Computed example of a mutant assay.
Amino acid sequence: MANVYSQMKTKLKKGDLVKVLVGKDKGKTGKIISFVPKKNRVIVEGIKIIKKHEKATQTSKGGIIEKEAPIDISNVMLVCPHCNKPTRVASKILDDGTKVRVCKKCNETI
């Protein structure tokens, strides 16, 4: 049986400002750097920092490096640029036929 969540559609995009809802970084905000769509995860700038032991190669020096780890999409919420509050996102079709994202709290386009 296929994973139900593997095909989950998200209304978040790369570069969006999000707030973390759970975990040790709860309450922090950051921008989305990238997506891991098959696992429904996002990598957020400055959130869930882990230490990774990396072996030295010809191009990079080895050692312990710090980097961001993926966090589940359900654990972050979009921050509206107009009202600066975490909000759910609705979609709306404008008169010219374009589909835009809308803040559920202030009804402004995102």
Rank of each mutant, 00 (worst) to 15 (best):
V36A: 11
N84S: 15
K67L: 15
I43Q: 07
G63M: 07
K85G: 00
N75W: 07
C103K: 01
K52I: 10
V36K: 11
E66Y: 12
C103R: 01
L78P: 00
I49R: 15
G46E: 12
C80L: 05
T98V: 11
V89F: 02
T87V: 14
I47P: 01
T98F: 01
E54Y: 05
I110W: 12
I50C: 04
Q7T: 15
T29K: 11
G97F: 06
K39P: 00
I32A: 04
K11W: 02
E54Q: 12
E68H: 10
K39I: 11
I33L: 15
A2C: 08
D16Q: 09
D95H: 13
K9G: 01
N75T: 11
V79K: 10
A69W: 05
P70K: 05
N40I: 00
K85D: 02
N3K: 13
K92Y: 15
R88P: 00
V76E: 04
I110F: 14
A90K: 14
N3F: 04
A56M: 08
P70N: 05
K38E: 13
I33Q: 11
T109R: 09
N40C: 13
C106A: 07
C106Q: 10
I47G: 03
K31C: 08
K48M: 06
S60E: 14
P70D: 09
C83Q: 03
K19Y: 01
K13C: 13
T57W: 04
G63S: 07
M1P: 04
E45P: 06
G30D: 07
V22S: 13
S74T: 10
T29H: 01
